[in-house]
Amino acid sequence: MFLINCPYCGERDQSEFTAGGEAHIVRPKQPTELSDDQWAEFLFMRKNIKGVQFERWNHAHGCRKWFNIVRDTSNDKIHAIYKMGDKPPIK
């Protein structure tokens, strides 16, 4: 059970949060113009990295805000937390 530093509330227990999968997957602005393959790429394809991964998290039992986390999935170490729409502070 790790600790997450919510950018709006501060450090809280993981149990207050829900994970929302890979970050920085932008919903296409013109879905109708995409081929089946292109749409499938957005719809289904997600990375599942052992190592550093960019993820969406939601403070569901708190401020209910979504934000992004850079987490190492092998040891749950969190390298960065930043608000939705912000550029990732690390690469």
């Binding site: 829900t18 929302g20 932008v26 939601n58 569901a60 805000k65 979504w66 939705m84």
Partner: peptide, 13 residues
């Protein structure tokens, strides 16, 4: 509610 909030905050802010 969660789904709607998600779209509002992340796709259509």
């Amino acid at each position: 509610l969660s789904k709607l909030e998600d779209y509002l905050q992340t796709e259509w802010p």
